[in-house]
Design a protein around this nucleic acid. Sequence first.
DNA 1: GATGAATGAGGATTCATTCAT
DNA 2: AATGAATGAATCCTCATTCAT
Lengths: 196, 196, 196, 196
Amino acid sequence: MRISERRAKKKREEILKSAIAIVNKKGYEGTTMEEIAAALLMTKGSLYYYFKNKDDLIFQCHNFVLSKAVKDLEKCLRAENGVSASDTLKKMIEIHIYYAFNQKESLNLIIEPKKAYTGEYLEPVLRLRKHYAGLFDEIIERGVTQGEFVVHEPIITRQFILGGLNWVQQWVRPNGRLTIDDIIDLFAYNILKILK
Amino acid sequence: MRISERRAKKKREEILKSAIAIVNKKGYEGTTMEEIAAALLMTKGSLYYYFKNKDDLIFQCHNFVLSKAVKDLEKCLRAENGVSASDTLKKMIEIHIYYAFNQKESLNLIIEPKKAYTGEYLEPVLRLRKHYAGLFDEIIERGVTQGEFVVHEPIITRQFILGGLNWVQQWVRPNGRLTIDDIIDLFAYNILKILK
Amino acid sequence: MRISERRAKKKREEILKSAIAIVNKKGYEGTTMEEIAAALLMTKGSLYYYFKNKDDLIFQCHNFVLSKAVKDLEKCLRAENGVSASDTLKKMIEIHIYYAFNQKESLNLIIEPKKAYTGEYLEPVLRLRKHYAGLFDEIIERGVTQGEFVVHEPIITRQFILGGLNWVQQWVRPNGRLTIDDIIDLFAYNILKILK
Amino acid sequence: MRISERRAKKKREEILKSAIAIVNKKGYEGTTMEEIAAALLMTKGSLYYYFKNKDDLIFQCHNFVLSKAVKDLEKCLRAENGVSASDTLKKMIEIHIYYAFNQKESLNLIIEPKKAYTGEYLEPVLRLRKHYAGLFDEIIERGVTQGEFVVHEPIITRQFILGGLNWVQQWVRPNGRLTIDDIIDLFAYNILKILK
DNA sequence: GATGAATGAGGATTCATTCAT
DNA sequence: AATGAATGAATCCTCATTCAT
């Protein structure tokens, strides 16, 4: 029981990972169950053994990666040592860009949830996204409290910052003139200019 | 001929405008030819007299709006009076947000062109977008030249700024707590903080 | 406009008639859109030009024939001349058996509507059936009023009678020992025995 | 062997009983192997250890119930005490209605066997049904022989009566205005009117 | 120019069935 | 005996596209 359950979970993750790659290449509507199955050398029907339907599968793709990213951000945010808000934020920017870049295939923050998800799946997606965004609110607030940041309308500012960060997936290409670390530095530099 | 040509052109624009409204609401994949036709009290078939196919039509929607936005931006950029770079940029931000707000989907800069457009349509879209972005580069450069802005790596900074601006589409809702004008002010405020 | 409308209606009826034959041979679930289309030398897709979906098509099949039967029964019931209730009823039996026999392919009173129809289609089917049954109630009631019939619990009795009549489709075969007219006579004889 | 055989038989019956309940609720096509298995806390696959395939299983459901009904009818018919044909018939009506009411679908005499059963299963079903009907012929004949009934064309009359009885399935609902016993009385009353 | 009608290529989903373990 | 997993055929339905009139 234990074993088969674990095996099933592993398989589910395997499917998710493969599906994520396809979804991010072709988009939500552009991806077919057929294609996902084929990439795994399975048949369409088998997918339905592991996922209720396409919406479910795609939803779990999104969830899978976003949850991981959230966990990373939270760890960074909860670090107990006396790190300044600026440094924590910079670390968070790094994490975000890491996901957007290395896991581009998996964390599509760009798609509009309302178009991609319906009914029962929409709400959890929105919740998770809100949570994700909230982590940035938290660090901004902390910076303000500690007198490190000066922010007018923090929510709008956070929206602006996240927009800039998300946009990375649209244009950053590996092997560009600048390294990822360069970009992270520049972004952090710009963002701190806004917040100070 | 002349007359009929002109009439056809007018009809084409009429279709575009109606289609844009629908695309804005339902998105690219969510829009059907049927729906576009119905809204104009035409039949599906007739659309094919004016547009080669759906991709063509949607492409032209995008083009139509983006071109108008470009024209607006250019007019603002070319205004000969001695406006400061800051003020010009603020005006440009206003224009962008206006379009992002009112023409949501047809000016969907968030869409990855490589996903949405194929073959003959991809290249013009990319070109126009590059042009659009270039207008922001231009104003930044001007500000730098005139000693008004101080920018490190202007392209990266512009990408960041445009990201923040494009993202507006995803979250600005009419009747929110803040008015569009408030948001424009806040965005300009933040952006100028980066650039100064 | 007139013409094309009329042509469409004719086509719709053509489809219905063909579909009716198939549905009655294979049953509701056993019939596929493919099959219906093939029988008409059309493609599946075309059916959807005329009918919203399978439920709609099947519903209209049922409706088409049942409505005709109802009309026939009503004409017979409303005949102004001083026909006795017995004679009217006999005529109605004849009509019912006529449909069950000659139009066996089309009037399947046997299928359980609740299983075959869903949502929006169930209610009209039930209503029409109730109406059909009501016509028999009417003649029974008339007979009672006129002192011609003596009936205890007319609804139950009518249910019993209609059951016996509907059953005809299960066993009457053309070219049996008895003619249809024989069967009608025998049924009328038995039914009148119940009612008198 | 003996023991395991007996255990298998018991299991088979257990499955049948559970399946019958489901089939009664959802009908032949509406029932899935999955569902039957789930109700028994088994998996789909296991069912195939006990039954060749779905047709087999459903056929045996039908058989199981119909055989029991036949047995009940026969017991009633063979009762040696000097019961009148009328009383025997009334008892048979009671049995039929009891089954029609409680075992709705699995004793679905309304289903056209040729539609539901194929190949090897069709013939036994037809045979059993014929036998079932024959029991009613028998009592009618006995009544005639004993001078209790007067029947013209007994086969047609029996068809009519059985039709009325089978139809019960379609309309009797628990908690109606009349009790089952009321309905049995009324049916018997009407049927005897025909036969006398 | 316009349209009614038809088409056909998919795509999601269901489910009976199989089979290695 | 049982099951988890996989399969594939079948089925409904959508929609861009075509074309004769």
